[in-house]
Design a protein around this nucleic acid. Structure first.
Lengths: 115, 115
DNA sequence: CGCGTTGTCAACCGTGCGGTTAAATAAAGA
DNA sequence: TCTTTATTTAACCGCACGGTTGACAACGCG
């Protein structure tokens, strides 16, 4: 079993069905039936996907009568974004320039009042 | 089997050992033995991890005599970054106002027709 | 209450993953 | 050539994953 949250999040995102579910939820919360509609899989399968997403902290669920609407958990992807930031310089050209600039500043004067 | 590159990349990143390997490679290329050293797993296991990373396009491998150094593939993470960009407004503070606006909209027209 | 709707739980199945050990391959060096 | 070093391949193992079907629970409504 996966104890590490970041691993759980990456693993959750590795499935195309789950990414599609997230895309749908980015337009607003939805019931399980609504989420299942575009796919050719059974309802329990969708229910399992939602459980995976929930354990990864990517969604949360409510209750309204017999519906259990799922909604995107807004801050969840921030952890991944922060992990990626460490590698940003490898693919983002504009970051290279900023990086160089920051290093240059840092060399001479650490606590300068930048306004 | 996974044919989708994005899925393969997320799956590759879901393993902590592989993320540690990437972190090591972000400081420069390394041989399999060097990469294996911090871990308590066998060499073939590391070799398999490298193959997963390579198939995901995250690293590439060379040959120098009997060594097969691995190096980070610079542009690889860009695909993931672009996927995440779609969700940026959900966690980035500078989009807070937009987010609040979307939530407000969402309240009104949630579950209309259909089931 | 009984009924229909919505969703989950339980059990099962096939496949792939991360790990192992043992053997094979590749290249440098004596 | 024979040996040493570096790495991959092959075969296997246990387990988690994504899927199924069938039964069950929760709730609104007549």
């Amino acid at each position: 079993m996966q104890t590490d949250l970041l691993s759980a999040q990456f693993a959750a995102l590795a499935d195309p069905t789950r990414r599609a579910i997230l895309a749908r939820l980015s337009e607003g919360e939805a019931s399980v039936n609504e989420l299942a509609e575009p796919f050719d899989i059974s309802l329990p399968a969708v229910s399992k996907h939602l459980k995976v997403l929930e354990k990864a902290g990517l969604i949360s669920r409510g209750r309204e009568a017999q519906w259990r609407p799922a909604r995107l958990e807004p801050m969840a992807l921030k952890g991944i974004a922060e992990w990626m930031e460490h590698y940003r310089r490898f693919w983002d050209a504009s970051f290279d320039r900023l990086d160089a600039y920051l290093k240059k500043i840092q060399q001479g004067d650490d606590r300068g009042p930048r306004n």
